[in-house]
Simulated scan of single mutants.
Amino acid sequence: MEDIYTKYRPYLFSVAYNILGEIQEAEDLVQDAFVEVLKMERGEVKNIKPYLTRVVANKSIDRLHALKKQRELYPGTWLPEPLITPTEGSHQEGILQYEVLHALDQLNPTERAAFVLRTAFDYPYQELAQICNTSEANCRQLVSRSRQKVADEVKTSPPHTADQQPLQQLMEAFLQSCAEGNPEQLTRLLKKDIALYSDGGGKAAAALNVLYGHEVVSKFLIGVTRKKLEQQLTLQQLKVNNLPAVLFSVNGVPDSLLYINRDGSLLSQIFIMRNPDKIILQ
């Protein structure tokens, strides 16, 4: 069993994390799945990976129903918990980009599980239909609709996973414009319909609502940066869900985590995590 745990735990964690959007919830759920297997008779399960996938996916769907109700009471904007790793850390297979993880919140739990398993892991439709408790034909339609909803929300073209350098360069130009307090220069880096999401969790100051539009977002960022520069501010390059991000610390204490999404050469989405419970280096 130890060999099975070591072999499949990273994969199962990715499945659960992508569906739930919370690290500890995903880890607990994967642990529960292995406990179930331990209680079974030896040889009772012949194909262990598909079995564990079904267990984790079904548990994730059930758990997400409860989590969605809890998130309705969340103070301000709720954002998924970012998977933060060092820049030199290894690539974590199957982990969806952060902006995709955020877009998945508009899907119901079954749609989300179907999207994750098919998109991130190319899971066979025949087996996916069993998890979703529907026919294979309906499952294909379910995945297709889910992908369209996510694509409409993310609006990223071209995908920046293939080449991280343009994203890194845009991040550097963005940070420089904020530091210089130049609203005109900053606005030129933003799409007109840009959206800024900020999660303080009721524990740190953050915009309660999503900010839309390049002028509104630019004004907000210039104001926030001006206040932060008055403090002992340091920057650290990190990765969030395998892509570049920046951690801001004040007097050595993590303060904010910044992640951006681009559409071509312009920023299309900005995510600022300020909830200290969600800024944890893995």
Results as ranks from 00 to 15, higher is better:
P80A: 03
L79V: 03
T85Y: 11
E88C: 03
Q70A: 12
T53R: 07
S90L: 12
K49P: 10
P82M: 06
G76A: 13
L52E: 08
T77Y: 00
L52W: 10
K68D: 05
T87P: 08
I61N: 02
K49M: 12
S90F: 08
L52Y: 06
L73Y: 12
L64G: 01
R63N: 01
Y51A: 09
K49N: 06
L73V: 07
R63S: 01
H65K: 15
P86I: 07
K69C: 08
R71V: 00
E72L: 14
I84L: 14
E81S: 04
E72R: 15
H65I: 11
G89N: 10
D62T: 00
A57S: 12
N58T: 13
H65N: 15
T87G: 07
P86E: 09
P86K: 11
T85D: 09
T53Q: 03
R63L: 05
E72W: 00
V55C: 03
G76K: 11
K49E: 13
K59S: 12
T53K: 02
A57Y: 08
L83E: 06
E72H: 10
A66M: 09
K68G: 11
S90G: 04
E72K: 13
E88N: 13
K69Q: 14
K68E: 13
L73H: 15
H91G: 03
P50V: 13
L79F: 04
T77N: 06
E81R: 02
K69R: 15
L83P: 03
K68Q: 14
T85R: 07
G89A: 14
P80Q: 03
S60T: 01
V56W: 01
K59F: 02
P82F: 08
G76W: 11
P82A: 08
S60K: 01
H65Q: 14
A66Y: 13
R54P: 09
K59C: 03
L83W: 15
K68Y: 09
V55Q: 03
K49R: 15
P80W: 06
D62S: 08
T85Q: 13
A66Q: 14
P86W: 09
K49Q: 07
L79D: 00
V56A: 01
W78P: 04
Q70E: 13
T77H: 02
K68M: 09
L79G: 02
W78N: 06
L73R: 15
G89Y: 11
D62H: 01
Y51P: 09
A66C: 05
K68V: 04
A66K: 14
K59M: 15
H65D: 10
L64I: 05
P86N: 12
P50R: 04
I84N: 06
V55N: 02
R71P: 04
G76Y: 12
